[in-house]
Design a protein around this nucleic acid. Structure first.
Lengths: 339, 339
DNA sequence: CGTCGAAATGTAAGCGCTTGCATTGTGCGT
DNA sequence: ACGCACAATGCAAGCGCTTACATTTCGACG
């Protein structure tokens, strides 16, 4: 089925317009360097032929793609959606295109995606969290691709980070929970291996407990992937243990919603029988009833700042400066004061 | 800040391995045509140099990228998430990479994205719905890029379609609603202009009403973008009109959830005071309470079938065959029998 | 009108890869 | 030991674009 489609090239346009390829190229890129007369001729030819520049060729010749890559753990729930949206909007405003891929939280997939994005000529990269194999950082360094880390903040990171302090944020929530009289906490965590956000959040709770003289080792902790169903299962596991918490804190909102659902199915009223908290404050948190107490994260601000800084890095006006943002608590119906 | 990073090329690898560039290339692509001995040498060199092939150059030389592009209206809600996930999984299994971009339901943005994806060398394209400007179809045809349309089914489409009958599906739900004794329906639709799914769904309801001798013109219809908040506003608008429906049917689940929320805020009990229905059966539908009555769509099957067919088209073993899938009703708590 | 500088354009050398074709190496039958 | 078929490799021509540099054009000014 060898179809002979005419895929017009720069040459074709040049011929049709009666100018050289250089003029066409200039017209398409730096149109101010071209006379109005030839600009018109060229535009007409482009239109007529249905010409679209070949990105690969362009990238190869210009050594620049105006593309930024972002690699996130998952697209399946909304955790990264809002931040990424802001990231892309800001990028777009600066003349860049965003390419996104996801890793399903698998480090090996992430490594692969990084290479793929670099192969595609990404001028810069956005990564989530700082915890990854050293070889990846070495590779990034050697290729000289500007890279920024978001959704986490670490003073001593090799790469610039922009985000919030996951541990302190969860600690603040934990303090609040304890203030409200809770003494028995259960915790549903995301998978900790290779995920600094998850482990920092767990640490935050433990830290809070210790500060009140409670032993974190008493706390039942259940690790679960970030899916509603699994959050539900984790909740059940915890509640069926010998140690019955009065509050189940969750590593993120998705898990918390799962927990709420299962609580309902088990005949437990939230918050009368058990309180539940989340993290992230995604849309879901206000859709469930009772609404979810959680930690609000400045997703949009983080996304757009990341975009600004990364473009600066790509354009060599900055070598990358870290930036810490604040989170805040959202106290809602799913958490109650213990009598 | 001119950093001199060594970005290794095929040439460097060839030199380091002591073979020709052709051998390295073959080793990386068709490794069966290379002796074990040189394969090892090459691999070692690749490893040592941290080589990653330049995608643009490769695409240009091979005229093939093993990349498929998908352009969807939005990533912000989960409507397309599950189907796209299946699409990408199947693609991946067939050795292809997926590139996704979204249009915010704007035809002009879609046209731009199509060109961008083609410029990036997409071997094939997945588009949502069939309603778009003729010039786009012409462009696609001229470039000879295999394109498949999903989330809709149309016998007479120029391009192969894979999906379900939006009108018949909504009609089935409407029939059910009428069976349950409802006579006064309100409808919250997605924006209809340029969106065949939205308009077909509305038609489905009108069709159902006519079949029972009801006048569709009596029905209050409110168009809204697919956001929870806007669905809520639309609900309020409809309920404050002179004509008070006993059921509000929605063009999709997101709108329906918004409607439910506002109903709650307005002190209306669902389904006692008003019934609400959705469309799509996304996860959200079972998270809200009462759970949402909706139309279940075989997202995953649609996605993976689309991937299969599109790869066949790209590999020239099919010119594209359409495929109609079935939807089904999910009757849940948000819809009640009218006394 | 001739001159000169700036603006506009053209020429052509790559960018890093694949692949058809030519060449070399290998193992086998006789 | 010789020749043959075939596997393995190398050579080099592009793929479509950008851009440094060379050349032409043009208008302004003396």
């Amino acid at each position: 089925m060898p179809s002979t489609h005419i895929i017009p090239t720069l040459d074709d346009v040049a011929k049709a317009a009666g100018v050289s390829t250089a003029t066409v190229s200039r017209c398409l890129n730096t149109s101010e360097k071209v006379s109005e007369r030839s600009r018109l001729k060229v535009m007409k030819a482009v239109e007529m032929l249905g010409y679209t520049p070949n990105f690969g060729a362009r990238a190869m010749a210009a050594k620049r793609t105006f593309t930024i890559g972002a690699i996130i753990p998952t697209m399946e729930n909304a955790i990264f959606a809002r931040g990424l949206q802001a990231f892309q909007e800001t990028l777009y405003a600066n003349g860049y295109t965003l390419l996104v891929s996801s890793t399903a939280y698998r480090p090996d997939v992430e490594a692969e995606q990084i290479k793929a994005l670099i192969a595609r000529g990404a001028d810069g990269l956005l990564l989530i969290g700082y915890e990854r194999d050293h070889s990846i950082y070495k590779y990034l360094e050697r290729r000289g691709v500007p890279t920024l880390i978001a959704w986490a903040f670490a003073q001593d990171s090799a790469l610039p980070t922009i985000g919030f302090d996951n541990r302190a944020s969860m600690r603040a929530l934990c303090d609040k929970v304890l203030d409200m009289g809770h003494k028995k906490i259960g915790f549903i965590s995301g998978i900790i291996a290779g995920n600094d956000r998850a482990s920092e959040r767990l640490q935050g709770v433990k830290e809070g407990m210790r500060a009140r003289g409670l032993d974190p080792n008493d706390m039942p902790v259940c690790e679960s992937t970030y899916e509603i169903e699994n959050g539900a299962n984790a909740f059940e596991t915890i509640m069926q243990g010998a140690y019955t918490p009065t509050v189940v804190m969750c590593g993120n909102d998705v898990l918390a919603v799962g927990a709420m659902q299962r609580a309902h199915e088990m005949g437990l009223k939230v918050p009368q029988d058990v309180s539940i908290t989340g993290f992230d404050d995604i849309e879901l948190a206000r859709i469930v009833s009772p609404q979810l107490t959680t930690v609000h994260v400045p997703h949009r601000e983080m996304g757009s700042r990341a975009a600004e800084e990364l473009t600066r890095m790509v354009e060599h006006v900055s070598t990358g400066v870290s930036c810490q943002l604040d989170s805040s608590l959202r106290l809602r119906g799913s958490l109650r004061v213990l009598d």
